[in-house]
Computed example of a mutant assay.
Amino acid sequence: MKLLQALFFPPEQPGGVSSMIPYLQERFTSPRWEMDLFSLPKRIRNKGQEEVQFQTFDWTIYGDSPVVQKYIQTYRDYLWWTRLRIQKPYDLIHAHHPIAGLAMKSVFPDTPLIQTIHSSYERELILNGRIEPNGLEHQFLLSIYGELEHRADRLLTVSDSFRRYLAPYVKHPDRIGIIPNGFDEKRFKPIPHDNAVTQLVTVCRLVPAKGLDILFKACAELKDKGHDYVLHIIGDGPIRPDLEELAQRLGIYNETIFYGYTLHPEEFMPFFDVFVLPSRAEAFGSVFAEAALSCLALVGTEVGGIPEQIEDGINGLLVPPEDPSALAEALEKVMLDPAYRYELARSACEKAKTHYSLGRSVNELKKMYLQFQAEA
């Protein structure tokens, strides 16, 4: 069976699906399966000139927005690159970004398309202060979900929480399947260690949606109580200067280390003690599963797909979003009780191995892919 995995970001890009699919490809290497990856290179800009039309809505009513114009031009570029580069037919296309799926279905209308929606671009833009709720951009991006449902042969997402989020914007939410992201256990090698000072770590893009301002305020409360810790920030993004200034203002700059972008953070994570990320929104939160496989104690917020991974008090701790004091209290619990911290980390690791292994995802995908082959 000839399969195409259509990404938006190239596989070497950080985070989530783009870093997962190459490991998926390795598991499909056999005479029975042939899998290729496809994505849009960063250098491709403003090449596409094709007229864009959607089948379920008129995008031009939102065309005054620069954000919408950029989205449409990126779609044109993806169409142009797809027509230029893909010369052979596939039995099935699995797209992992709305632009990728819509472009593939336009170029190959007779090829079955599975579309996985991994995250909510509109929520990210709202939380990061780039668009207004219910504005032109928001309405446009919500309309894309209906177009995807209309065009794709099967719609998937990564958590029950995100399926509920999508429900108002599609006609048949009950038909949306759920396959969580899978992670190759071989990448994660927990290492026994005993740090004299608790090592906190977070891995994310530095944007407002990740709630790092809340984390910094919680860490300031911990310092005011006399607790020693080091906070490691792995990742980069547009608000890094603001976060560095906030750390200085709160008096925690000496306890905070900014690493910038790191291609393989899983190589560092086993040396830390606690993974913490007070996100304001997460469709799934892949980095929690990665931290769990590194055998770290997990502290997260009660948003999106995070509570599907963390059972509060059993394999991690959950706190309300936007609550620095609750976050500080949760961190204090795992900092002061190493035995409790270890039990949470061990339980998190066991659950991640059971529910979020790459092998499990591969098996579910193979079953689904073969259904399409049987229907052909």
Rank of each mutant, 00 (worst) to 15 (best):
I214V: 14
T262C: 11
L243H: 08
V170S: 08
H227A: 13
R175I: 10
L231N: 08
L212G: 01
D236H: 05
E255M: 05
A247W: 14
D194P: 01
E244L: 03
D242R: 09
G285T: 11
A167H: 15
V158H: 04
T256P: 01
G211L: 14
L250T: 12
L200M: 07
F268I: 15
G285A: 02
L155P: 06
F272W: 10
V287F: 04
L231M: 08
E282N: 00
K217S: 06
A220C: 14
S159L: 00
F183R: 00
L250I: 12
F272S: 12
A297T: 03
I179G: 02
H227N: 07
V276F: 14
R280V: 06
K186R: 09
L277I: 03
R175P: 11
K186M: 01
L206G: 03
S294F: 10
P180I: 03
I239A: 13
Y261N: 14
P278I: 14
K186D: 02
G226L: 00
R205Q: 10
A291K: 06
G235Q: 03
T256Q: 04
R154T: 07
A209F: 02
H264K: 15
L155G: 07
I252N: 10
G182W: 01
R163A: 09
F183W: 03
S159D: 12
E245T: 04
V197L: 03
R249K: 14
P208S: 09
D242T: 13
R249G: 00
V230H: 11
D242V: 11
I178R: 02
T262Y: 12
A220I: 04
P180W: 06
V201D: 00
A281I: 12
R163G: 12
A292F: 08
V207P: 00
E245D: 15
Y259T: 10
P270W: 02
F162C: 12
L222R: 04
V274A: 01
R280Y: 05
P190I: 04
V274S: 04
V203M: 05
D228M: 09
E185K: 01
A209N: 09
L263Q: 15
V230K: 03
I239S: 06
A152E: 03
I239T: 09
P278Q: 07
R249F: 00
K217D: 05
K186P: 00
P265G: 15
L246Q: 05
S286N: 15
A292T: 00
L156Q: 10
A152H: 06
K210E: 05
A196E: 08
P265E: 02
A218D: 05
I178K: 07
I214S: 08
F162Q: 09
Q199P: 02
R205G: 09
G177M: 02
A152R: 05
I179F: 09
A247F: 05
D236S: 13
L243M: 08
S279Y: 07
G251I: 02
I214D: 06
Y261M: 15
Y229H: 07
D242L: 08
G177A: 13
R249A: 09
G211E: 05
S286P: 06
C219E: 06
H232D: 14
E266M: 14
L243K: 12
E267L: 14
Y229A: 02
F268S: 09
V287S: 03
L155N: 06
V276P: 15
C219S: 13
N181M: 02
I233D: 04
M269I: 11
P241C: 13
L200W: 02
Y165F: 15
D242Q: 14
I257A: 04
F216E: 09
I176N: 10
T262M: 13
L155I: 04
P238A: 11
